[in-house]
Simulated assay, not measured.
Amino acid sequence: MGANTSSKPPVFDENEEVTFDHFEILRAIGKGSFGKVCIVQKNDTKKMYAMKYMNKQKCVERNEVRNVFKELQIMQGLEHPFLVNLWYSFQDEEDMFMVVDLLLGGDLRYHLQQNVRFQEGTVKLFICELALALDYLQGRHIIHRDMKPDNILLDDHGHVHITDFNIATILTKGMQVTTIAGTKPYMAPEMFNSTKSTGYSFAVDWWSLGITAYELLRGRRPYHIRSNTSTNEIAHVFRTATVMYPAAWSKEMMSLLKKKGRLNCDPTFELEEMILESKPLHKKKKRLAKKEKDTNKSCSSQGCRLQKHLESLQRDFIVFNREKMRRHHNEIQENITLTQTKDPEEEDNQNNNL
């Protein structure tokens, strides 16, 4: 197979920074406009995660660097059982990496596309769990702004987790948000009417949750709004549309965990990553080594400008390690406990000696 093949995993110092080398790439599971997602296993703990990696050059070219940094800033301060939590963030010359909880139950959009009709009791459970997550976010002054079935993942026990904080925002105390952001069919009416004097707040996430719950129960949304529907048309829909509420929701039995045991995603992503992908992960080391050799070559003014942006990104990127943060927190707690449980007699003897 090759000189590097070994049955023994490499040994890593727990105090060193986590990098791409700490993980084994298992398979690709999804892709976006400039980011891709794969399943990875950490070499030392054997724990599995989802790893999102974003091409730096594409992020710079599409002016998405600020959004990525904001997402990292928000996610490193969050930890909740019904969120997709960030564990590590790191970078190399080509990509930025975010390692998060691995959830193999698929997103709710996938299940809707498979014609799953959720029981009312199941949707109630989802609403309770999502409400706890939104309440947690609100307590930290965060508006998600993109609540929809696509951004709600199931774990293998059928519990829901909110993901994708790419357009989330932190609400300054006493202020309202005025920028329009989100997915039109799930956006609250006030988001379309926001101005500098009248904005919106946390209520928009609860509206989106209501639209999502309706869609899960009926298989379609309450309003006929699409991503290409104009703002004027949307305003007309909100003024004139009558939401239909069935006398009895469907009783059809459809188990949430029916597909448990296999990955609920499109397997073509795997083929794209390994066959069609121009810069696959498994060839990264060779590619970066070659790139290093070419750094001394002259570049055009446009290329040099891009290089300056990439260097700025490299410098400002937020590195995060939840594992290390937890160890540090546990050490502090242990020291506090030791101090509090110290023998009073021993303390008196020490004072006498002094």
Rank of each mutant, 00 (worst) to 15 (best):
N4F: 11
T5R: 13
V11Q: 10
E17W: 00
V18L: 06
T19A: 00
H22V: 01
H22Q: 02
I25Q: 13
L26R: 03
K31I: 02
F34C: 14
T45D: 13
K46T: 08
K46S: 10
Y49H: 00
N55K: 11
N63K: 11
N63W: 01
K70M: 11
K70L: 10
Q76F: 02
G77H: 14
G77L: 10
L78Y: 03
L78A: 08
L78M: 05
E79T: 11
V84Y: 01
N85C: 11
Q91V: 08
M96Y: 05
M96H: 02
V100G: 10
L102H: 03
L104F: 07
G106D: 08
G106E: 03
L112H: 04
Q114K: 12
N115P: 02
R117G: 04
V123L: 01
C128A: 14
E129D: 04
D135M: 09
H144E: 01
D146R: 05
P149K: 00
N151F: 01
I152S: 04
L153V: 07
L154Q: 05
G158D: 09
D164T: 06
L171A: 00
A181N: 05
F192E: 00
F192A: 01
F192Y: 09
T195M: 00
S201F: 05
A203V: 02
V204R: 00
V204G: 01
W207K: 03
A213D: 04
Y214H: 07
G219L: 04
T229E: 01
S230V: 07
S230G: 10
T231G: 08
I234P: 07
I234C: 07
R239T: 05
P246E: 07
A247G: 15
A248P: 05
L257S: 03
K258Y: 15
K259T: 14
L263E: 06
N264V: 15
F269P: 01
E272Q: 12
I275S: 13
K283D: 06
K291Y: 09
E292Q: 13
C299F: 09
S300Y: 03
L306P: 00
K308F: 08
R315I: 02
F320R: 08
K324Y: 06
R327S: 11
H329F: 12
N330P: 01
E334M: 15
N335V: 13
I336A: 12
T337I: 08
L338E: 15
T339H: 15
Q340F: 12
N349S: 12
N349T: 12
N353M: 14
